[in-house]
Design a protein around this nucleic acid. Structure first.
Lengths: 143, 143
DNA sequence: ATTACTGCAAATCTTTTGCAATAAG
DNA sequence: CTTATTGCAAAAGATTTGCAGTAAT
């Protein structure tokens, strides 16, 4: 069983657990997501899915992706482009964006240490729950 | 001279340096930006500016803000909302977003130490130029 | 005088939504 | 059978653009 097939199986199992019905449209979307790169847009999914299932509607893809986010099958990934990206990698990780070609790489970081300048920051008693690192630079291919 | 007046003076000086013409519209926008909180949208600027200069066009605000970004008088601030925010704080800093009320605070951090898991990440010879920390949690008011 | 800037309206782009028909469980 | 899901077309919201007139330098 390939890695992609495993991912697909996992999506099917989880969506059943969440009570989602397994329509052919959803099945096509799941398949694409389990094969795709990790930082995909709705329209990219739609373009590929149409080839398998030509009468598919764009609205259906939008609705499905948002449902998946609500059901924790997918995460929003806001990289500052013109349209929303979705991250199929649910594990804890960060992102590196190449400012030349725009490519996005996942970055795994063991531990981060930092010291807030409390005089200039005004966090007071704020409770920090999560921490995302956004790295920018030039990727190997572009340098 | 107040802090806001200083900010305004700085914008005027810098824009002259960049060769921008000082129209009344631009002047109003500059004034609002030098008085405003740091994470403002085009529409927020527009709404306030209209009161001073009612025949101002929204397109003019859009064009001016983008020009300011190009001329390094302003920075894009992508916090994942529905519309672009602009940051008037040009110094190096990071952001904390309260997940309950949405408030954004600037966070100053002296030094950040982290260790990339090179086995799982694939940065290869990528050159990292900048590093943004995006903190999320609950602010003092909400907890 | 020259060139940037402006207002307006139309266009574009992404995302959402109402609704009636259909299909999954 | 019941309820979620779908396609379609329209709506909504943010941003951009063409153009002809206006104003800053």
């Amino acid at each position: 069983m390939t890695e992609n097939t495993q991912r697909l199986q996992k999506l099917i199992t989880l969506s059943k657990e969440r009570g989602l019905k397994l329509t052919p449209q959803r099945m096509v979307i799941f398949t694409i997501l389990s094969e795709a790169n990790q930082h995909i847009t709705v329209d990219e999914v739609y373009q590929r899915a149409k080839q398998e299932y030509p009468m598919l509607s764009l609205a259906t893809v939008y609705r499905n992706m948002e449902q998946m986010v609500e059901s924790d099958l997918l995460k929003h990934l806001d990289l500052g482009g013109t349209s929303m990206r979705y991250d199929t990698n649910l594990g804890k990780h960060h992102h590196f964006v190449c400012t030349k070609c725009g490519k996005v790489s996942d970055v795994y970081i063991d531990d981060i240490q930092y010291k807030v300048d409390t005089k200039r920051s005004h966090l007071d008693k704020a409770k920090i729950n999560s921490l995302d690192l956004h790295l920018q630079g030039t990727c190997s291919d572009c340098s």
